[in-house]
Amino acid sequence: MIAAPPPMIALAIAIVCEVIATSTLPKTEQFSQPLPTIITLVGYGIAFFFLSVAVKTVSIGVAYAIWCGAGIILVALISWLWHGQQLDTAAVLGITLIMAGTIVINVFSKSVSH
């Protein structure tokens, strides 16, 4: 049996797979396109598996906050770069606050195993 990765590595893998799945979701065209649909479903499956690995030692609240914060930032960036979607000032401010919160949790929280 393969050993589980450290919790923060598992969480990082979960985030990357979730971002890939979410970024591919529009290309599924409501799950009518096979390849993007497979990528989306497999991405979410892998993401949830590695999230379950991470929450064995990281509190679910902290893991989910990091997952959401990083996911929002990365998906917004990908949406802007690849899908040409624009963000207004309020969206950029909100994403900046989410980023700040994620950094505070990662750097200062005793709930995160570093």
Rank of each mutant, 00 (worst) to 15 (best):
M1H: 13
I2S: 15
I2K: 12
I2L: 15
A3I: 06
P5V: 09
P7N: 14
P7K: 08
M8Y: 10
I13A: 12
E18C: 07
V19H: 08
V19L: 05
V19M: 06
I20Y: 02
A21C: 08
T22Q: 07
S23I: 01
T24R: 02
E29Q: 10
Q30S: 14
L35C: 00
P36F: 06
T40H: 04
G43C: 02
Y44F: 13
I46H: 08
I46N: 11
A47W: 05
F49G: 01
F50W: 05
L51A: 08
L51D: 15
S52D: 10
S52T: 07
T57R: 12
T57Y: 10
V62T: 14
A63L: 04
I66L: 10
G69E: 12
G71N: 03
I72F: 03
I72T: 07
L74E: 12
I78Y: 08
S79H: 07
S79F: 06
L81E: 11
W82F: 13
H83S: 03
H83K: 05
L87T: 02
T89C: 10
T89A: 15
A91W: 05
I98G: 11
V104Y: 12
V104G: 03
I105W: 08
K110P: 08
K110H: 12
S111C: 00
V112C: 04
